[in-house]
Write a protein that binds this DNA or RNA. Structure first.
Lengths: 127, 127
DNA sequence: ATCATGTTCAACCATATGGTTAAATATAGC
DNA sequence: GCTATATTTAACCATATGGTTGAACATGAT
């Protein structure tokens, strides 16, 4: 059912691996934008921005509607959903960890006054 | 609080944008693996696999524990959580769409037999 | 028809990426 | 110490990526 086409995921994640492109997606999250609109915020040529847009388009992340001489882009969330589903496989890894932490905090604070608990560096976590 | 370090997201998404590396993560989801273990399934040199592992490590996706002469790798889900949080911003786009579809199906199927409905224009959808 | 606007295309460049092989490093075992 | 095992490093190669500039294309406006 949920097909994890690895070639598609390659292009999707690759498209997301660039701050300029993520910013373009963020912009498109608020509505349609022309190529020029999308390019405007960035200190690069229009041609460069156009390439980024094509990368997003190739990944299926945006659709393009040519209206006269302007190309109007809009977000297509489907590939993001694919990426999310792939990530979903791993979600238990951090929810488990958070659940454990939460449980730990709950038992620690049971009966004791609400002191800010010195969480032992969940950064350098050893097991 | 939840910092969206765009440089970090660059490296995380870049690391995820390769099927070999995603397969390595999938393997690590079942437990610790040595570099050799991780490299074994792939038709590439150990040196190439080692590079992939370093990309994953640079993204913070895996940790490395050097035990004698073998380097034991394990999954670190924190960057995946970051990626998930970034994606979360867009989650409404597909949940909204699915909700709308669901509602549509519910009204359509009220009284009518469950026929496969012609979904209007989710046309970016291949497969 | 002319001119301006929005966008792409082509050629080019520097750097990054993903792979190779061969040599180097570190540790384990005899 | 010697040898085998686990892994990295170095040098190299082909291709991809992200940027540039300048020309081309398509459409809108006069």
């Amino acid at each position: 059912m949920v097909e994890h086409d690895s070639l598609a995921l390659d292009t999707i994640f690759h498209a997301l691996g660039d701050a300029t492109r993520r910013a373009m997606l963020a912009e498109l999250a608020t509505g349609e934008r022309s190529v020029g609109d999308l390019a405007a915020p960035f200190a690069m040529s229009l041609a460069a921005a156009s390439k980024h847009i094509k990368v997003l388009e190739a990944a299926g992340l945006i659709r393009r509607d040519v209206r006269g001489r302007t190309h109007v882009c809009s977000l297509d969330p489907a590939p993001l959903m694919s990426a999310d589903q792939w990530l979903g496989i791993y979600r238990r890894f951090w929810t488990d960890r958070l659940d454990t932490l939460e449980a730990l905090l709950r038992t620690k604070s049971a009966g004791t006054p609400p002191v800010k608990p010195p969480i032992p560096g969940n950064k350098g976590e050893k097991r």
